[in-house]
C-alpha cells in the first residue's frame, strides 16, 4: 500500500521530505481547500479508508491526518 506521505506528496505536488508533524493547512500554500478534498479522495481510493465529513473538516495538519488515519486503519 502506498504510504500516506507518498499520497500526500503526490496530491500536493511537493517532496515527501517536506512533510512532518508541523506541516499544516495554515503554513502550506499547496494544501488549499481543493487539494484537501482531492487528498481525502485519493487516500480513500488508494487505501480503502473512508473519512466522515466531520473528520475531513477537523484534519488541519499532517499529524492530525496521520493520527486519524492510523486510528481508522486499526479499527478496520
Amino acid at each position: 500500500m502506498e504510504s500516506l506521505k507518498a499520497i500526500m506528496a503526490s496530491v500536493l505536488g511537493i517532496k515527501q521530505e517536506k512533510l512532518n508533524d508541523n506541516f499544516s493547512r495554515d503554513n502550506s500554500e499547496e494544501w488549499d481547500s481543493f487539494n484537501h478534498l482531492m487528498l481525502m479522495s485519493e487516500i480513500e481510493k488508494k487505501t480503502g479508508i473512508k473519512f466522515t465529513i466531520k473528520e475531513i473538516e477537523s484534519i488541519k495538519s499532517f499529524k492530525n491526518l496521520k493520527d486519524t488515519f492510523e486510528k481508522k486503519a486499526k479499527a478496520k
Binding site: 481525502m40 480513500e44 473512508k50
Partner: peptide
C-alpha cells in the same frame, strides 16, 4: 469510473 464516499466525488 469511480466513487469516493468520503468526499462524495
Amino acid at each position: 469510473i469511480g466513487k469516493m464516499e468520503s468526499t462524495k466525488f
